[in-house]
């Protein structure tokens, strides 16, 4: 039930931002649409709504995760641009296996998305029981599981652990 309320609020705020200039017709339609969406898919949206009421999670998200993510994203683009424009195409691709410590769905989703948008890596599949993530790496630096984990996952996992666990 609380998950439905959270989804209703998120959907309604999205609707208001998309319309931007408030108007009672828009707001009324928005309430109906957000209510309908929340009624249908509310239970799938979030597993543990309690975590939304911890202010330190937002603090870590805005001031630790976002700057790290934007910086890595810019680095990734310059890296890919360099590889594409280089006449000899300096790539050494392969799929490696890395270990993850996160357990929650949201945490794993954010970790996989972050890995995809950071330099040279693209997450392919996840094995939740054993805690492995398969990552396509454009320039394989190490075939060993532990080494690869240290290079690819560690810097994000440290921050995401505090937000989602």
């Amino acid at each position: 039930m609380r998950s439905k309320i959270v989804l209703f609020l998120v959907a309604f705020i999205c609707w208001c931002l998309l319309n931007w200039i408030p108007d009672w017709q828009h707001l009324l339609v928005g309430i109906f649409v957000a209510g309908f969406v929340a009624y249908l898919t509310g239970d799938l949206f979030i597993r543990s709504p309690d975590r939304l009421s911890h202010p330190h999670r937002y603090w870590y998200f805005v001031f630790h995760y976002l700057p790290l993510f934007i910086w890595e994203c810019i680095k990734a683009n310059i890296d890919v641009a360099f590889r594409v424009l280089h006449p000899r195409l300096p790539i050494r691709p392969g799929i490696v296996k890395v270990k993850i410590k996160l357990k929650t769905d949201t945490g794993i989703t954010f970790l996989a998305n972050s890995i995809t948008l950071t330099p040279g890596t693209l997450s392919v599949d996840v094995d939740r029981e054993k805690g492995f993530l398969y990552v396509h790496w454009i320039d394989v630096k190490s075939k060993d599981v532990e080494e690869a984990t240290k290079i690819v996952v560690a810097r994000f996992e440290r921050v995401l652990e505090k937000i989602f666990e």
Partner: peptide, 24 residues
């Protein structure tokens, strides 16, 4: 550059790398 990568890189996975990052 992303579109150029789509043409130059050799297989599906490498092309996805260029397409996803640069286009995002």
């Amino acid at each position: 550059i992303g579109c150029l990568g789509l043409v130059r890189l050799p297989d599906v996975y490498n092309r996805l790398q260029a397409a996803t990052k640069c286009v995002t």
